[in-house]
Computed example of a mutant assay.
Amino acid sequence: MQALQFSHTGDLAALRHVELPRPVPGADDVLVEVHAAGLNPSDVKNVLGRFPYTTLPRVPGRDFAGVVVEGPQHLLGQAVWGTGRGLGFSRDGSHAAYLTLPAAGVARKPAALGFSQAAALGVPYTTAWDALQRSQVGNGTRLLVIGGNGAVGHAAIALGRALGAEVLAAVRRPELHRKLLASGTPCLLLEQPERLGAQVREVFPEGAEVIFDTTGFWLPPAVAALADFGRIAIIAAPVDGQVQLPALALYRRGGSLVGVNSLLYDTLQCARMLEHFGAFFDEGRLPLPEGLLEIPLCQGVKAYEAVNAGSCEKIIFLPQAD
């Protein structure tokens, strides 16, 4: 089968388009024929050596959608999707024509989603779902999503609405600000950090009950925008991992921090998440992904280079198209 594979880390030149034997599933596994696989920034960082627990040689890729061709009878022929810890790190991932994983680690694909659409959602949507669930977002929650233009931010806005939250986005770029407003999403144009509290309280006079900072750079000013007993969820941090947190202000508000790391969840746990919010697509409560860039897997190395160079396009590999 064709696949992308790297045998050392530190340079994208390590990534190759290769032919490998088709994997053989274990007793409790399924073999999935991959119809579509998403490319995430973390896949690129994996090849660059940012994850010390990756074992080599390795096929990268976390997100996929496809059809079960070997495994338990009740799953044979089923269209499935999946993601989770291990894929692309300690076991071969989705950037290949086939992959194996535990049978309980796949979820049935929502009928409303095509294969490419499903493959685009795994990492960003499970990350956002985890952040909102652990921050107790529900009906009527005043939710601020900082960085609403990125994949995780976009997912958080959509999921927040599906859960009934009162959603407010915040972005830096004027064109994105205009785009979100035109789509019906209340949105702030981020200015100086010290202005964030006042900006948010113009919309939420009592502050945001939950703030999800998807950028990692707005944690200190976010405290001023927080409601009493509010929660701030974060998924990133400055390169050195340090931040000046106004702890006294956070303490006085009774606030709490929620660290969000999608790599804490294995494929079985992620499958349960996918089943939960996947139903929202079939119910019409979540918008279908648009603007995906579908390319054959043989062009995968160039796609990795594009993402590393800053491309924001959502790239989907089509292994069966080559």
Rank of each mutant, 00 (worst) to 15 (best):
Y98D: 00
R85K: 07
V69C: 06
L101H: 06
A97W: 00
V80C: 09
Q78L: 13
V123E: 08
G82R: 07
G77D: 14
H95S: 12
S135E: 04
H74W: 01
R134E: 05
R85C: 02
A112D: 06
R91D: 01
L99N: 05
W129I: 10
G105E: 07
V123C: 11
R85I: 01
A79C: 07
A79N: 07
A96K: 03
Q73T: 15
H95I: 14
L113M: 09
L132E: 08
V80R: 07
G88Q: 04
L121S: 01
D130P: 00
V69N: 06
A79E: 14
A104Y: 03
Y125M: 14
L132M: 07
R142A: 13
E70K: 09
G86Y: 04
G82K: 12
A104E: 15
Q78F: 02
W81E: 00
G82E: 05
S94D: 03
R91E: 08
Q117S: 03
L87F: 11
L132C: 12
L99R: 12
G140T: 13
L121N: 00
D92S: 03
Q73C: 00
T100A: 11
V69W: 09
G82I: 07
R85T: 02
L101V: 08
T141L: 02
T83D: 03
F89N: 02
T83H: 01
S90W: 02
Y125S: 09
K109R: 15
S94K: 12
P72R: 02
G71A: 07
G140R: 09
Q136D: 11
A79W: 03
G93W: 02
Y98F: 15
A96T: 06
V68D: 09
G122T: 05
V137H: 01
A119D: 00
L101M: 14
Y125D: 03
G93T: 05
A119T: 01
K109T: 11
D92P: 00
A104K: 08
G114A: 12
Q78T: 15
N139D: 10
G77L: 14
G122R: 05
Y125A: 13
L101K: 13
R91F: 14
G114F: 13
G114I: 04
P102D: 10
V106W: 05
T141E: 03
A104T: 12
V68A: 07
H74P: 00
A111Y: 01
K109G: 11
A118W: 11
A112S: 14
W81Y: 10
A120R: 06
Y98H: 15
A120H: 04
G114K: 06
G140P: 01
P72L: 02
T83A: 05
Q78I: 06
L76F: 11
P110N: 07
V137N: 00
L113Y: 15
G138P: 05
D92F: 10
P72E: 11
A107G: 10
P110W: 14
V123H: 05
G140F: 05
K109A: 13
G93Q: 06
G88M: 02
P110S: 08
L143W: 06
A79K: 07
A97Q: 15
P102R: 12
V68E: 09
H74N: 12
Q117L: 08
Q136A: 14
Q133M: 13
R91A: 13
R134H: 09
L76I: 14
S135C: 13
P72G: 04
L99I: 11
V67E: 01
L101D: 06
L76G: 05
V69A: 08
A104D: 14
G84I: 12
L143R: 02
T127P: 01
G114T: 15
